[in-house]
Design a protein around this nucleic acid. Structure first.
Length: 196
DNA sequence: CGAGTGATCAGCT
DNA sequence: GCTGATCACTCGA
């Protein structure tokens, strides 16, 4: 098996996405296992990507080295967490969409008071950011650096992966690309709509 | 299903 | 410097 960093560095965003699926993300003592991701390609070949129209102040970290965090604010409310992937300048990314909480359940429930069930805690990119306590201050961090407050650790490769289309993209923005990956054995923690 | 939230950016002036 | 469209979403009806 190729190394974790090598997979994140791959030019193929799907290979990076497969490596992130099943990995563990950790922040402020909260650990969770990533069960749903989406791949985004750089280099102007993916109209759904923030990097599609070139580098700006907002998306600059996407053009930097792989393994770093790209966090951005969306819909006026939610912080969404991505892992920068591909070689420097390639601007691929993997969006973290859902996770299974592994510890500190009480803390996570406190951060997500609107959650009615434990499924609601991290089943969606905005929810996951809220549950972890991630904000724009956490963009540009090296997720592989043990001294970083926000860390990403490799996990066992996910045996059964369900592939679907990405969520929320308009027609003509790559909405039909099969770049949403879900762990088939962790469907209890995945966001809606459920892929087949 | 619709409302609501605010940063970002392209395209103007 | 301003405006308006856009946005990879969530919640409550």
């Amino acid at each position: 098996m190729r190394g974790f960093f090598a997979a994140l560095s791959s030019e193929d965003p799907l290979e990076s996405a497969r490596a992130v699926l099943g990995a563990t993300i950790e922040h402020e003592g909260i650990r969770c296992r990533i069960v749903e991701v989406e791949a985004y390609s750089g280099c102007g070949r993916d109209p759904g990507s923030h990097s599609h129209r070139g580098q700006t102040k907002r998306n600059a970290v996407m053009f930097g080295p792989p393994g770093h965090s790209y966090v951005y604010f969306n819909y006026g409310m939610y912080w969404l967490l991505n892992v920068v992937c591909g070689p420097v300048g390639r601007a691929n990314a993997v969006l973290l969409r859902a996770a299974q909480p592994l510890n500190e359940l009480e803390t996570v429930r406190d951060r997500r008071p609107k959650a009615r069930t434990d499924h609601d805690l991290m089943s969606g990119p905005g929810r996951l950011g809220q549950a972890l306590g991630v904000t724009g201050a956490h963009t540009g961090l090296c997720l592989l650096d043990p001294s970083s407050p926000l860390r990403l650790r490799p996990g066992e490769p996910v045996e059964r992966v369900i592939v679907g289309t990405r969520i929320g993209l308009a027609e003509g923005k790559g909405h039909d690309l099969p770049w949403r990956l879900v762990d088939a054995d962790a469907l209890a923690w995945v966001s809606k709509p459920h892929p087949k």
